[in-house]
Amino acid sequence: TACQCHSRKEEKMPRCSVRSRKLVFRSGQGQRPLSPLVSQFFHTFYDYLICFCFTALILKLLSVIYKLVQSDSYATKRDIYYNDPQLFGSQKTLDSILDDISCMLKVPRRSLHVFATSKGLISGDLCYLEEDGTKVDCSSSSTAVPVSSNVNGIRNIVSAAKFILIVEKDATFQRLLSDDFCTRLSPCIIITGKGVPDVNSRLMVRKLGDTLHVPVFALVDADPYGIEIMCIYKYGSRAMAFEAHSLTVPSVLWLGLLPSDIQRYRVPEETLIPFSQADESKLNSLRSRDYISCQPAWEREIETMQRLKQKAEIQSLASIAPHFLTRVYLPNKLRYGGWI
């Protein structure tokens, strides 16, 4: 079984093992997402109390999931946590165990009838119907719509968008909204997961990419963590490697901010941020991944960043001119193919 408790004769101590969902995963070649090797690796706990508590939490959550599936009803992760906060201890604990169960049963988390409240926002040339028939119009130029909590239930998607733009940070997303970016250049859709994206934001990008068949671009900071976030959309994350096949968009293109753009556009030196030790470690981690080494253009950009020992946020472009991002940088990039 995927989760088991047993004793080791030589130590007379209980051992609890649960299938790992993130320890090892194989990188795809070129445009293919990561392939998790979760069936061969296990987390093991030798402490009696931890083993007991872990098993109790899994059984409790399985009981909740069973009732939801039997009654064909749904609950958010927050709902489940606040029904028994003393048992779970923290929302993070519940989230982790829910992902372990999803991996153990080899089903997507949404099949467990448990949803997460979305943190992402979306705007642009897009209309669709929610599962309950509610019509959602994302075309307002001044406000954004929260990403649906039930992306799989979305239907009747209508859009004339020429491309989809993933925006790393909410501050940049709001700047694009205030400058009316979605209609100024050409019909498009912009979406943000507000940093590291939640599952619903990733599902939405995947669903729109599969439905509309238009280019998907990423606009992230020129730093190791921006690249990491872009890779989550494109290749998947270690924590959710077992669902990479349904959450990733392998065709994502890196539009900006490229490390080479720092010199190309003469971004003022005072807006650049020196590398920290954490940045160095993250960059070395990225360079060691197969999906980076198989893309020479990405490798060159990462080498440029490592050589400069500096990073730049998207907002640094405003130091060139207030509307440089939306009226010069992005239009030129999209018009003349400045992506990799």
Rank of each mutant, 00 (worst) to 15 (best):
L257C: 03
E131T: 15
F181P: 12
P274G: 06
D99M: 14
F275A: 03
M204N: 06
I101D: 06
I157H: 06
M13D: 01
W298I: 13
I229S: 01
E228A: 04
N332V: 14
T248E: 04
F163K: 04
I320M: 09
L272R: 13
V167K: 08
L308G: 15
R287K: 13
D100E: 07
G256M: 03
L121T: 06
L247Q: 04
C5R: 09
E243M: 04
K311D: 02
K234H: 01
R266Q: 11
L59I: 02
V18I: 08
F163G: 11
Y235P: 00
P36S: 15
L258A: 09
C16G: 01
I292S: 06
I157Y: 06
R206I: 05
L212C: 01
P108D: 12
A239T: 08
P197T: 10
Q310C: 15
L283P: 08
L219V: 05
D279A: 10
S71W: 04
S178P: 12
C127I: 13
L87E: 11
V167D: 07
E280F: 13
K207T: 11
R327I: 03
L105R: 13
L283K: 04
V69Y: 06
R266T: 04
L98P: 07
F45T: 12
K119L: 12
L272N: 01
C5I: 10
E130L: 08
E303S: 15
F88Q: 02
K282A: 13
L37F: 13
E228M: 04
E269R: 02
T192W: 03
A75G: 02
S260C: 05
C16D: 00
F42H: 11
S293W: 08
G337M: 01
D72A: 10
Y336M: 02
W298C: 03
R335G: 04
S7C: 05
S186A: 13
S71Y: 02
C16I: 01
V199Y: 07
K311G: 08
S111V: 08
M204Q: 08
V136Q: 10
G236K: 00
N156G: 07
C3S: 02
Y82H: 14
I97F: 04
L258T: 04
S73E: 11
S140H: 15
D179L: 09
P215K: 03
C138V: 15
D180L: 06
K135M: 15
L129F: 14
R78M: 13
H43T: 10
Q86D: 09
R287H: 02
F52K: 15
S246M: 13
L59Y: 01
I58Y: 00
A160I: 12
V69G: 02
A56W: 00
L129Y: 14
D72Y: 04
F275V: 04
L129W: 15
G195W: 06
H6Y: 05
L257I: 05
G209W: 00
V199K: 09
A160Y: 12
P146Q: 12
D100P: 05
N332R: 15
P108F: 11
I314K: 02
F25P: 02
A144H: 10
I97Q: 03
